[in-house]
């Protein structure tokens, strides 16, 4: 565990807490993509089946359980508890356009052709694009609540920090995983446009809105 990875995980936890708090405090999931959250639930479920097969540390196992639990709790809030506020009309990104290519790619490009490994690989590919329905929703409505933009900033920071973690691990531990790195870089790139608008608008106290 190095500082970049710790901060990355912390940022990831923060993102999830911000998301749940936003829904709970405003009693609304308006502006949130249920489809991105479905994708994240699939990501965590397929990646963390290794909870049953390999033990890394108490921290690692607890984090996995929290991520799985919170992703389903979020789905419950969006699709059941606050369903009336869900912006389904704008949340129209077709998830199969992400699921199918990621599944095929996992079957072709993987470290080992073995069930748990393939699920891990699939989850890595899917995570890299899971935020697309959320970004698509924002591009359709042209705006995001400030708290939603904080959520996205935290989530993007998590991936950015993981890249620093991989650079560190490459030099210090001679460890690298090309599948995780390439997917992680793609994922971070998807946030760049958002980061730019976040820094130029939200940090200066303005609402997050796409340029006209």
């Amino acid at each position: 565990m190095n500082i970049f990875r710790f901060l990355g995980d912390a940022s990831h936890f923060a993102a999830i807490i911000i998301l749940v708090l936003k829904i709970w405090k405003t009693r609304s999931c308006a502006g949130l993509s249920g489809r991105s959250q479905i994708a994240f639930a699939i990501v965590f479920t397929t990646r963390y089946v290794d909870l049953l097969t390999s033990y890394v540390s108490l921290y690692n196992s607890l984090a996995k359980i929290i991520f799985i639990f919170s992703s389903y709790a979020t789905l419950y809030l969006i699709y059941f508890r606050f369903k009336a506020t869900y912006d389904g009309n704008h949340d129209t990104f077709r998830l199969e356009f992400l699921l199918v290519p990621c599944a095929l790619l996992a079957l072709i490009v993987n470290h080992r052709f073995q069930v748990v490994e393939l699920l891990w690989t699939f989850s890595i590919y899917l995570e890299s694009v899971a935020i697309l329905p959320q970004l698509f929703l924002i591009s359709k409505t042209g705006e995001a609540e400030t708290i939603t933009s904080h959520y996205l900033f935290s989530l993007g920071s998590y991936r950015g920090l993981y890249i620093l973690n991989w650079i560190y691990r490459y030099y210090v531990q001679n460890y690298y995983d090309l599948i995780a790195i390439s997917a992680g870089v793609l994922q971070t790139l998807l946030y760049c446009d958002f980061f730019y608008l976040y820094i130029t608008r939200v940090i200066k106290g303005k609402a997050f809105a796409l340029p006209a």
Partner: peptide, 10 residues
């Protein structure tokens, strides 16, 4: 080496 045997990250 591409150490992919154990996935110790989240």
């Amino acid at each position: 080496s591409d150490s992919s045997k154990e996935h110790d990250e989240l």
